[in-house]
Design a protein around this nucleic acid. Sequence first.
DNA 1: AATTAAATTGACCGGTATGGTCAGGCTCTT
DNA 2: AAGAGCCTGACCATACCGGTCAATTTAATT
Lengths: 203, 203
Amino acid sequence: MEDRLSNLDSEKKIKIINSAMEEFSKNSYDKASTNRIVENAGISKGSLFNYFQSKEKLYNYLEIFSIKELANEISKKVNWEEPDILKRIKEIALIKLEVFSKYPYLLGFFKRINANKSMEELKTIYEKYVPNIYEKVYYENIDFSLFKEDIQVKEVMNILIWTFEKMGENYIKRIKSGEKVNTEEISDELDRYMEVLRKGFFK
Amino acid sequence: MEDRLSNLDSEKKIKIINSAMEEFSKNSYDKASTNRIVENAGISKGSLFNYFQSKEKLYNYLEIFSIKELANEISKKVNWEEPDILKRIKEIALIKLEVFSKYPYLLGFFKRINANKSMEELKTIYEKYVPNIYEKVYYENIDFSLFKEDIQVKEVMNILIWTFEKMGENYIKRIKSGEKVNTEEISDELDRYMEVLRKGFFK
DNA sequence: AATTAAATTGACCGGTATGGTCAGGCTCTT
DNA sequence: AAGAGCCTGACCATACCGGTCAATTTAATT
């Protein structure tokens, strides 16, 4: 058996992934410690190296896992027929939040990947593991005629995306600090911002 | 002489500060290396410990320096009579950009501080070194009757602030990657976003 | 219950990097 | 040429690094 991970108990697997993501998101690759990873994951050194063979392979696994996990969830769950960009963005925000609740250090780990890889390298990886996701997410079947007529679409799109990203970051901060996030409260807040943005930029 | 830094050549001082900020923003306190700091700053180990006595004192100095540097620049340069929030935010964005050009790792270092300190601790520090800055920045003399009448002010304020923060982060990324940022181009982009936001949310 | 197979452990390895020291070197002013 | 004040970098004990592997525990098979 090549892949020694798939045999693992799913809860244990998540614990290892989260511990490794935490370590790699807090420290650069060189300074990240496999000792601390096994300690926080509650497994032995030998097991980690049995599952992943080396630190480098662990890191590579995590990289691909992160990219696939988030993109696949979005791919699967979004209603791609919905033409209203605000509804699309809200949907994605909620999916992200769900994934980040399961893997609280995923966003931090993504930021590391982003910092260490050029735009081209990143796009190549995405193209390989989740083809077309870039063009799809905020554009597929979106009805851009819903924007106010005299508005600059590119700028508004960024404002929408950034607003929900910032909200998401704030939620992750709260999740990490141990707070139990109330899904209903979040959905309400997203709706409030949606309403404001709709009034401002849409017909 | 207690403060052995003020005697220093200003260019050298900036080089040391930037090198230390870079190291502390890339690594946690424990893993940040004084060896690498002196190497990148172009000074000897002995000098660093002559100036700062210990790693801890260097870190504390940096923390207070960062907070003061940015807040004082804003305090000094902003036109506090301007009642238009968009103009206020643009002014602050440009000041931040200026400071971040001088200290490219300041924002990264701030994020470390934020991650390691609770909201209360942070506020205490700000209150001590730059009193009232929190209430002032986005509120002092701002004319909130300029907003559209049926709009939710709190949400719009966050959208404005977040938009300019995200733009700033993108510029810093470009500065760090060595790109020479064209101030005129930036000012144009800020204006473009200001215009869109004004159309959406203001009378 | 006995035997075999598979999964997990953690003490241990050589090697690297750590924060901090301090005796001596260098460069000025007098 | 002498003294004063910066500045240097080899040096210290020590802590931790990624990775190994014989020994032990757990699970499966007979």
